[in-house]
Write a protein that binds this DNA or RNA. Structure first.
Lengths: 348, 348
DNA sequence: CCCGAAAGTTGAAACGTCTCAATAGACTCT
DNA sequence: AGAGTCTATTGAGACGTTTCAACTTTCGGG
């Protein structure tokens, strides 16, 4: 045990361990308590000592170890984020918004993507628990939010992302998806469409369920039997699935005159599929998406869609969560509801 | 100090602290050492004891605290990731790939986006250091990689993402961007274009620099003076900046006959800008992008572009990093180079 | 010159885990 | 029965912080 074998292997790499608070203390001729104070309560330590210690910190390249601090304090300035699909620009913007608000408050984010799979979500939640994140921002896949409420009650504040809470029991930042669905459907109805298809993903996800509900409510308001919503369910809300759905869409008889997609990626795929089969948009079939992603205006035809503001959603959710973290006994769970906006272009 | 004021406030929330290894030990009538063993070296503990302990763990809902473990072990199964722009689907896919490989190995990712800003990057690196991540996957903004090499040498393995290392001193996963530039330029030259514009972002970023180098090498190979690369620099590689660049693009005299963009988002913006001004693509100006994002095939006109495989980049980089983490004294820094692919569509 | 208060500093305990040397028990062999 | 081997278990110390009560020093006032 006299000679250390580890220092021999690997040459110079991984040589000296990072300096800790006690190395600083030693070098500055002071106790660890004092060093810790200059970190956390600088005002209690004498100016001269403080300056000396700060100088030493710089020289040694000292950086405090947050995970040691977390162990002591029970908070580590990390928030977990789970989105439905990190490769979708909508969620990318949401994450960017979260990161922004997190950075502003000195927090850091741990990111997960569930790919809309409940199993992956469950595993991710386990990981989040293992790492004891301070708070959680999540676009849930699982139908019931019991587990999330449990996590919240156990001391890890949860804020729902783009998903309203059952009876508002958890704070949430949402866009009014029912209204979005209504807007799209009313627009189509106003243009005389009576047989409308709705292409969506798993209905476990509240956002898609709400959009559908909005669409249906409009069409059901009229009594006539011929107004009907044809529903096509796909596995994931991406362009590939959209293209695959076209087959099923066209085989319906009578064929829908308009297609409403639960998001723009899906609409993109549908558009590709339709075009490949020689079906013209909007002459033969009208098409409406949801999200108004960057590219949507430049498709051919330009996509009519419902605009949201994902960056703001992420940012507000982040701020809401951080507010709860900062002041644990904050009033009632807050719900933030943004309004969607119909953007009419050429496709419908 | 006899009565605890904290337990009063907030009602039931945040009540009992999470059970630790010692709670399990107490409940199972065994020492903490033994409990720790069933976690890390199950084979050394007697079957009966082990089962009993496992049962207790389940009952108590015990989950080990990884950040305490990190403190002891110096490794916490967290890897940091920094991309250039999380809202760009290219990087979204990269992150998805990283997450995939991380999950497979029981790691978790901490995500940052630099927005191509060197200051943000520097701040993010500080945060990463504070949190003592085990390894780092980064698409660097800063020109020189000294700081990264330093981090690597100090014991936090670094793998470069979509960025080749100076003289191959750091492991990297890259696509051959020079080749991509060559392919695009040769294609244009083959179609008779002689005055080509290249729209790009900050040239600190190696990928863009390489793409430009490839383009230039092709055009310079011919001696004729009239072959020239017109360069337009923008602040960020997104659609908005692309649209803004069009103004400058068209004011050049003589006007370029073809425009090459450093990525598809930029091309999207350029396309929008050109269309708005009544310039037809490809009749008046040819346009080529880079990345082949999902939507690129569906633009009007469909975008000719260079295809990459971001998911694979992310995944391979993740695997490479985790291999280094698992076996610290791994041979030489490895470079992984993917080949790009020209996808010819209508825009050029 | 002594007292008390104010200002600075200290040392130890605690957070939850891992590891290692030490111990205890059971079994085998002579 | 004693010595020697295994197998299971234990307890203490360490990882890098924070915090708090206790201590020392300084200083003003009586």
């Amino acid at each position: 045990m006299a000679s250390d074998p580890k220092s021999a292997r690997g040459g110079r790499a991984r040589s000296r361990r990072e300096p800790g608070i006690s190395d600083v203390a030693a070098a500055a001729g002071v106790s660890v308590g004092t060093v810790s104070h200059v970190l956390n309560r600088p005002e209690v330590v004498a100016l001269r000592t403080r300056e000396r210690i700060e100088r030493v910190m710089l020289e040694l390249g000292f950086v405090p170890d947050l995970s040691a601090r977390r162990l002591r304090l029970g908070m580590g300035r990390v928030i977990g984020v789970q989105v439905l699909d990190i490769a979708n620009p909508f969620w990318g913007e949401v994450v960017r918004g979260v990161e922004e608000s997190a950075r502003a408050a000195g927090y850091v984010i741990m990111v997960f993507s569930s790919s809309e799979s409940a199993e992956i979500e469950a595993r991710n939640l386990d990981l989040l628990r293992l790492h004891r994140v301070d708070g959680l921002l999540i676009a849930p896949v699982a139908t019931d939010e019991r587990r999330l409420r449990e996590i919240d009650a156990r001391g890890t504040p949860v804020v729902l992302l783009d998903h309203r809470s059952e009876r508002g029991r958890l704070p949430a930042v949402t866009v009014d998806d029912v209204l979005g669905g209504v807007m799209a459907a009313e627009y189509l109805r106003g243009r005389g469409h009576e047989r409308i298809a709705f292409v969506t993903g798993p209905l476990d996800i509240a956002a898609y369920r709400d959009r559908r509900a909005g669409v249906r409510s409009v069409l059901r308001r009229r009594q006539r039997q011929c107004e009907e919503v044809v529903e096509v369910r796909v596995a994931g809300l991406n362009a590939r699935e959209g293209a695959a759905a076209v087959q099923r869409l066209l085989s319906r008889d009578p064929r829908p005159t308009a297609v409403l997609c639960a998001n723009d990626l899906l609409a993109l795929g549908v558009l590709r599929g339709l075009t490949e089969r020689g079906v013209r948009v909007p002459e033969d079939v009208s098409l409406i998406g949801y999200d108004d992603l960057d590219f949507s205006a430049m498709l051919s035809p330009a996509l009519t869609t419902i605009r949201q503001h994902p960056f703001r959603i992420g940012q507000s959710a982040g701020e809401l969560l951080i507010a709860r973290l900062t002041d644990p006994d904050l009033s009632a769970p807050r719900q933030l509801l943004f309004e969607p906006e119909l953007v009419v272009r050429a496709s419908a």
